[in-house]
């Protein structure tokens, strides 16, 4: 684990947005975890987190995401945006709480990662520029994470 605080995603890089807009990681008491929002009234779960339920405008509560997911689609990126080193994998991952997250996927297997692959995640540095940013990095279930 790094000495960085689990602030989720960059705020400084996007003037005009506040921290809540981009807070996908929070420490809910047991270390930083990926979070979503759940409506206490209708039970709707949304990711990324948001303040109000889009269906009934109730203030949503923050819930941790289990992180035990199923790979929906993965893409190898060969031309990297600033702050990333190509090649790397990014993925759509379906979580049992009823959300689909998108995140880096650590994959060094033969060929493409298979759709339906069971994955889990740990928190790590996902971007290095313009500042270091912490985020979820998924990996095949059973493989040690950093």
């Amino acid at each position: 684990m790094t000495g960085l605080q689990p602030r989720g995603l960059s705020v400084a890089a996007y003037p005009g947005h506040n921290a809540v807009d981009h807070q996908i990681i929070e420490d809910l008491g047991n270390g930083p975890v990926l979070v979503a929002s759940e409506c206490p009234r209708c039970g709707l779960v949304r990711y990324p987190p948001r303040e109000l339920c889009p269906d009934d405008l109730t203030v949503m509560r923050t819930i941790p995401l289990s992180g035990h997911g199923i790979l929906h689609q993965a893409v190898r990126v060969d031309l990297a945006p600033v702050g990333f080193v190509a090649p790397y994998w990014i993925a759509h991952i379906d979580l049992p709480e009823g959300v689909r997250v998108y995140a880096p996927l650590s994959w060094d297997g033969d060929g493409d990662p298979p759709i339906g692959l069971e994955v889990t995640y740990s928190i790590g540095i996902v971007r290095t520029e313009p500042e270091e940013i912490l985020g979820p990095i998924f990996r095949p279930l059973g493989k040690a994470g950093g």
Binding site: L9, Y14, H17, H22, V75, P81, I90, R127
Partner: peptide, 27 residues
């Protein structure tokens, strides 16, 4: 950042995780 992919407004979360538009549509 010439030569690098340009991210879109509204993709701040995705962009910070490595999802630029080409990757979204590649999926």
């Amino acid at each position: 950042g010439k030569g690098r992919t340009l991210t879109s407004d509204g993709m701040e979360v995705e962009g910070d995780l490595g999802f630029a538009p080409p990757a979204m549509f590649a999926a």
